[in-house]
Design a protein around this nucleic acid. Sequence first.
RNA 1: GGUCCCGUAGCUCAGCUGGAUAGAGCGGCAGCCUUCUAAGCUGUAGGUCAUUGGUUCGAAUCCAAUCGGGAUCACCA
Length: 591
Amino acid sequence: MLTDIIRSKTIKAIQSIYAIELSERDLQVNLTKPEFEGDYTIVLFSLIKSLKKNPDEIGNAIGNYLVENETAFFESYYIIKGFLNIVLKSDFLLKMLNQHYQDPCFGKAAMNEKKIMVEYSSPNTNKPLHLGHLRNNFLGRSIAEILKANGYDVAKTCIVNDRGVHICKSMIAWKRFANGATPSSTNKKGDHFVGDYYVMFNDAYKTEVEELVQKGMSKADAEKEAPIMKETQQMLIDWENGKPEVIELWKTMNQWVYDGFEITYRRIGSDFDKTYYESNTYLLGKDTIEMGLKNDVFFKKDDGSVWIDLTSEGLDEKLVLRGDGTSVYITQDIGLAQLKYDEFNIDQSIYVVGDEQNYHLKVLQLICKKLGLPYADGIHHLSYGMVELPTGKMKSREGTVVDADDLIDEMVSIAAAHTQELGKVKEFSSTELKELYDTIGLGALKFFLLRVDPKKKMIFNPEESIDFHGFTGPFIQYTHARIKSVLRKNELDPSMHDFKEPLHKMEKELLIQCELFEQTLKQAGQSLDPSTLSMYLFQLAQSFNSFYAALSISNAETEQKKQLRLKISSMVATILKSGMQLLGINVPEKM
RNA sequence: GGUCCCGUAGCUCAGCUGGAUAGAGCGGCAGCCUUCUAAGCUGUAGGUCAUUGGUUCGAAUCCAAUCGGGAUCACCA
């Protein structure tokens, strides 16, 4: 990578001029700001102390040395107020261009030996997906792809929360209110169908509680005594005892939800190498607790419940097994962590889970460490912020949840309206059009959710629909389609690779930006952050559009210039396409 | 109350381990389609980087305190 090359050559220069060995960390190399002359900038301030010279003197010495001794790389230099701005020769960039202008693997690392698991999505089977789930799904999928591009062997998994009292709630409501209705009899998507009964449960429950309070019962008691709640709790017990009729209903209703999820997953492009179900894993982890009890990692209280004391870590005492011997949430997470490790032999396990569970995941890792489990250090919580509305958190009780399917439909129909209005793809068949609308609508939505730092919470305003202009997915898709159009109309000659004419400023800038792709992927992989990639792709597209407006490709001054520009365009399109694919976004040939 | 996170333009967000006059997009204003896709391009206005102190050649960035907002601390998942 260029930055690394410049850094190491500069360090070598300093060593040979001043006989002082600097570490890579001591030297800052950045892109030169556009308002100054030069391509890359070396910051001289940090060298003043160790070299005991003034910045101008140091800059001149280094600049001279580089231009004279590294003739293949450096052309000239400028010194402005403590910064050494160097001008690159075009050779390195042109070589890269000739090699990779249509290489879909450009920027990606070779396979390494490490295996990483990414767990994401992890839905509940009692309600349809909402906007928050979309952020999770897009992040998980994209991070998995980015890690693959960094050479890792990646396994995508999902843990489905398919059991528990909340699942029984929709089952009870269905028994009470459905009269045998099914998704097909009502022509409703299965997950939405079941979700409706979950809502009905809460309504009925609320009514019953109110009635009891009217009769003089306290609110707390009423909440426990409401018949519908008692039925639900009984159902959970029946479920755990395997009562056939309950199991039958549970299977049926979950299948409805899975059928619904399947449609959404296929549409948004989420898939998994392995799906775990809580109904299979909820009993895991007890052996490990037993082991920890023997090793004094855990302790037992008088009532038989098992705990871990994390107060020395600044946390609390945490229950890991109930007094009656049944599991809590963390018990099965300990077990599942073990199971994943056993089944996949992973070096690292990434959990894409919302930041509301920071404490939980911290405790999970700490417990695994204390137990001395080999995979403890590999556990990594990719904590992402909640998606909120301008009015605050989304609340299902207040009906302010943004439904995933609805939002996708809305985005796709906006894409369709825009496309029809512009009328650029009149020759498309109806299937091609449908595919294009999906590509653009989902591209806008995915990019919107991936362009911000995962760690930060973000605000979605349903009043202003997601943009299709500016820093958006469609902007990048459009840039790609535009390039493809130019490439269709002008023949690129692969044999032409000797570009002697000096590069235009914008040509050089584009090549330097292309070169940055590898570094960007590496950084996105290390920080598990697709937003850095999103920003990079946007900037690249933006630079291309400026280039496109300022310089003519097909009517370039010379044939050599034309071919150079066609290759640069091709390289930009290649990077935009492969970069967007790492975000889970397709780019059209035409739009 | 304990722990953790956040506060940058009207709005949504970038600003990496301290470095040049704090940047994008949207929205506002003014321009650009007889030339390769105007979902584009160019220009312009808009900031006490929550506040106050400290560290130093230099702070939006590091430290401390204050103010404001949020998450979490269940024999829930």
